[in-house]
Write a protein that binds this DNA or RNA. Sequence first.
DNA 1: CATGCGTCCTGCTTGC
DNA 2: TGCAAGCAGGACGCAT
Length: 277
Amino acid sequence: MPELPEVETIARGLAPGLVGRIVADARFLCTTVLADCPCGDTFRTAIHGRPIRNVRRRAKLLIIELSPAPGRTDPASLAVHLKMTGRLWIAGAAEEPPRHTRFQLFLDDGQALFFQDQRRFGNCRLLSDLDSWPFYASLGPEPLETDAKSLADRLGKKTARIKALLLDQTVVAGVGNIYADESLFLAGIRPDTRACDLSPARRRKLFAALQQVLTRAIAAGGSTIRDYRTPEGLEGGFQNDFAVYGRGGEPCPACGTALSVTRVAGRTSTFCPRCQG
DNA sequence: CATGCGTCCTGCTTGC
DNA sequence: TGCAAGCAGGACGCAT
């Protein structure tokens, strides 16, 4: 389930093979992968001949920035959301696409970007202006490019559970279930605490914890629960450092108390009933 | 407006 | 052993 650290790892891994290349064509092996249309053939015409200018991450999105094709002046961006089971890698264009491959982006060097997604939740879209996409425009700040106090101030007087707000992409961008649970543990906060019940100091502590967890996870190449792989096909390493995620019933790494499992914001949430008050 | 919950999708896991 | 129900979860639509 690629969240911020996983998508960051993917962006860094893909950039050397994509930046400077020219898009030759695309092939869709699934009709639903292309969100909000334009339809497949329109998409193919719209990307043909475009040099790839940059590859970066925003929230959980992989953004491939495209320059105009020769003789044109219209830049564009390809935004890919991997959702839960999406994978991206570069391989020879002639390679047989494995099962669940949803689309291929063919490059001018005989290589292709492959997008595979077992569960079909993922999608990509071609946008002339990213900010014209309401979801993109509504994204909150990047947690690693914003100070913890500013992030804490964004909680305002909200009464929602703190975990729901961590997962809310308009509050802070890129956090999913794994890093929400890990951050809450590190900050000693129960996931079902209402944001308005947290002191300013505890809010700051939470976002400082989030920054620490995300930084460590990026350094480890992300977390592999089941499906996530780096573009090189490698598993991440941060799953070995989980304190609570996926460890319900196991002893708390800090105090030994059995970790509790509950549902907050519709998501499974694991926490230590003793350390997280 | 703010909050919360059901839905999508498919393969693996759990339980009878 | 076999089969079905349950589960995973990001974003979104809709209800309250």
